[in-house]
């Protein structure tokens, strides 16, 4: 520790201010994303029950958590993935309000139609069958964990399993995502922005 000098208090203040500012920046960036990001609703998929409940958060699975390319599809950009690298998924809203993937790429897509949303994920694992006819990308988007008040996770988990849950996701222009809240039985559960 720095010795007894006049500088002690100013230095302590600088450290406290810088650390506080870093935390504020974290909150501010997240808040802005929640407020100004494009909002999409994704159906939550039932997961392996052993995996769903860990501590006080539920783990959410999505259709886009596993991206598959088969020989019958000809998406030319579905290539060049590496574990730990990025994956960009273009989503479009159908007439029933369901968001589904229209395009998958390892780079930010050059063409995005109006009304579509691009979300960025991180490749967790890659899988190919013997003759490389089918490529499967397991991806995470940072919207897989929803923290719940203690003791209420189990009920929510049952709903996730019986297809009654949708996730509200905010999407920034660069594809960064934030989980805003959940729609459970048509009812929105969401914390208001902080700032």
């Amino acid at each position: 520790m720095i010795g007894k000098s006049k500088l002690v208090w100013p230095l302590l203040a600088v450290v406290a201010i810088v650390q506080s500012a870093a935390l504020f920046d974290m909150v501010f960036a997240r808040d802005r994303l929640l407020k100004s990001g494009q909002e999409i609703a994704l159906a939550v998929k039932p997961l392996d029950p052993r995996d769903i409940f860990r501590g006080d958060y539920v783990t959410l699975g999505y259709d886009i958590s596993t991206l598959t390319k088969s020989t019958t599809e000809t998406d030319p950009d579905f290539t060049g993935f590496s574990v730990g690298g990025p994956v960009y998924v273009t989503l479009a809203s159908g007439s029933d309000g369901k968001w589904t993937e229209t395009h998958v790429s390892s780079q930010y897509p050059s063409k995005v139609a109006p009304g579509e949303a691009v979300i960025k994920g991180r490749v967790q694992s890659l899988w190919q069958d013997g003759n490389a006819a089918v490529t499967r990308v397991i991806a995470r988007y940072g919207i897989e964990n929803y923290f719940v008040p203690e003791g209420t996770g189990r009920a929510l988990e049952d709903k996730v399993r019986s297809h009654e849950v949708k996730a509200i996701v905010a999407v920034a222009a660069d594809g960064t995502t934030a989980l805003k809240g959940l729609i459970v039985d048509g009812e929105r559960h969401e914390d208001p922005p902080l700032l």
Partner: peptide
């Protein structure tokens, strides 16, 4: 304080459902 700085990062992550 350094430990609490880390705890704050974790709790803010939880507040905003940052898990990834």
């Amino acid at each position: 304080s350094a430990g609490m700085f880390g705890a704050s990062i974790m709790l803010i992550s939880q507040m905003y459902n940052i898990g990834g």
